[in-house]
Design a protein around this nucleic acid. Structure first.
Length: 159
DNA sequence: GCCAACGTTGGC
DNA sequence: GCCAACGTTGGC
């Protein structure tokens, strides 16, 4: 089975890498995605896939660490929760609209890799994140891109 | 806080 | 099915 690579964005105030590391059992449902393209990509994810964890709305925005997909997409429960800010009254429980994978922290990078660093590396020119305002919160990456970002971050710190 | 990009909605 | 209005994202 071929492993795939991804980049997943979150605002650290809402859900950052530290939350993930501190989470019970160190795994967490990646809920709240309300974009069809991102949803479709998440449904392609397989157990064992790896993802770069990107912190947005920070100065500078940056890649912080690496996650592993530990469970394939299941219906996102927040879409059926009227109390949730992600509540979607239009979603049919028999045919849920929104799905979420479960992720686990693998390790932080030894040093963060900023968006400017990503943009400055010609090897990463095809990554969506470095292209003009590509806001998609879940993006595919190649293994070469994934490895390059980790190399730029000085490798993975021991958890 | 601003605003460009861009996805979604809804009138026609 | 078009497209203007609107809302959100996210870098700056």
């Amino acid at each position: 089975m071929k492993r795939h690579y991804w980049l997943m964005k979150s605002e650290p105030d809402v859900f950052g890498y530290e939350h993930l590391v501190a989470a019970p059992g160190q795994s967490e449902l990646w809920d709240g995605v309300r974009n069809y393209q991102a949803r479709n990509l998440m449904r392609e994810m397989k157990v064992g896939d790896r993802a770069l964890f990107y912190h947005s709305s920070t100065r500078p925005p940056h890649v912080f660490g690496v996650m592993e997909i530990v469970r394939e997409a299941v219906p996102d429960p927040t879409q059926f929760d009227p109390e949730s800010s992600h509540y979607d009254p239009g979603s049919d429980p028999d045919d849920p609209r929104w799905w979420a994978v479960t992720v686990r922290a693998l390790a932080p990078l030894k040093k963060i890799v900023s968006l400017d660093d990503l943009k400055a590396n010609p090897k990463l020119a095809d990554m969506r994140i470095v292209q003009r305002n590509q806001r998609l919160s879940i993006q595919p990456a190649t293994r070469a891109e994934f490895d390059e970002v980790i190399r730029m971050g000085g490798g993975l710190a021991k958890p």
